[in-house]
């Protein structure tokens, strides 16, 4: 009798399919309003997408947002960054010193350059099978038939098995149906000016286009905090005015529009 119960339970379990390997913990992105709206953050080991329609101008913003997500998910683990060569020509190549300036350790990033998205997806599939990675960032340019529902579902499944989070950044592209957990549209946003009208921290205008949990779409303005390696609410940088600097500025005949930097 008991063995019957057990065997029936077994068949029931088999019908339910394999349990997901990694429990999808929610990773907070940083800004309190954003995390609240997302009910705690974004789940890891699922696919997230970021789109920008304007390729060249918002390329840096979209890449930085994608990198930001990847870093949030990866923590200290390595990230594989798969890039389409074409975007080097259109929007510049990745710059190690710039990554370091964003607080991201360039030594933890492996860059794979591919000619087209098909090869890129193959590389991503390979990378997503390596559980030692933290995240896989894909950066593709323009429309592509290869990045369809099937391809994204494959990525999502691979992510579920290994626990590695894929982040898909698409420049100069329109959203298409996909298996992504969340889909964002990213654009650069005017920063909070520093003294002397200098550009401030990186700021993005992000809009949640789709979330599989059915969260409503909304738009936020967030900044990237290089020290915390997290997104943040827009706020002027709290920095004390240098004493010598202030005295010199006061002593000058004109009120100089400048600040100490570098």
């Amino acid at each position: 009798m008991a063995s019957d119960t057990i065997s029936s339970l077994r068949t029931l379990l088999a019908q339910c399919g394999p349990l997901p390997r990694a429990a999808n913990t929610l990773i907070p992105l940083g800004p309190s309003g954003l995390d609240e709206a997302l009910a705690g953050g974004l789940p890891g080991a699922t696919l997230h997408e970021a789109f920008t329609a304007a390729g060249t101008q918002d390329a840096a913003a979209a890449t930085a947002f994608g990198l930001g997500l990847a870093v949030r998910f990866a923590k200290d683990r390595p990230i594989v960054w798969i890039r389409q060569e074409f975007s080097d020509v259109e929007a510049g190549g990745p710059y190690g010193a710039g990554l370091a300036a964003l607080g991201i350790d360039p030594d933890r990033i492996i860059v794979v350059r591919t000619g087209d998205p098909v090869l890129g997806l193959r590389a991503a599939g390979e990378a997503l099978r390596c559980p030692a990675l933290g995240a896989v960032l894909m950066e593709f340019w323009g429309r592509s038939k290869a990045l369809d529902l099937t391809a994204t579902r494959r990525l999502a499944l691979a992510a579920e098995n290994s626990g590695v989070t894929p982040v898909l950044v698409r420049l100069a592209a329109e959203p298409v149906p996909s298996a992504a957990m969340s889909r964002w549209s990213v654009a650069a946003s005017p920063s909070q000016a520093l003294e002397g009208n200098a550009p401030g921290r990186p700021a993005f205008e992000i809009a949640l286009l789709r979330h599989r949990a059915g969260l409503p779409g909304q738009t936020w303005i967030v900044e990237w905090d290089s020290e915390q390696r997290a997104f943040d609410d827009p706020a002027p940088l709290p920095r004390a005015v240098d004493a010598v600097h202030a005295r010199r500025a006061a002593g000058a005949a004109y009120t100089a529009d400048w600040r100490r930097a570098g």
């Binding site: 390329a59 840096a60 890449t63 930085a64 990198l67 929007a91 510049g92 190549g93 990745p94 710059y95 190690g96 010193a97 710039g98 990554l99 370091a100 300036a101 964003l102 607080g103 350790d105 360039p106 030594d107 492996i110 860059v111 920063s191 520093l194 200098a198 550009p199 401030g200 921290r201 990186p202 290089s226 020290e227 940088l237 709290p238 920095r239 930097a261 570098g262």
Partner: peptide, 28 residues
């Protein structure tokens, strides 16, 4: 950017100063 299999170790990276925005671009 050098081949990932190279054993060459570079100099250290220079992050941005505390409270400063990034002074180097992400894409060059």
């Amino acid at each position: 950017l050098i081949p990932a299999t190279a054993s060459f170790k570079g100099a250290g990276w220079l992050g941005s100063e505390a409270g400063e925005p990034p002074c180097r671009p992400l894409r060059l």
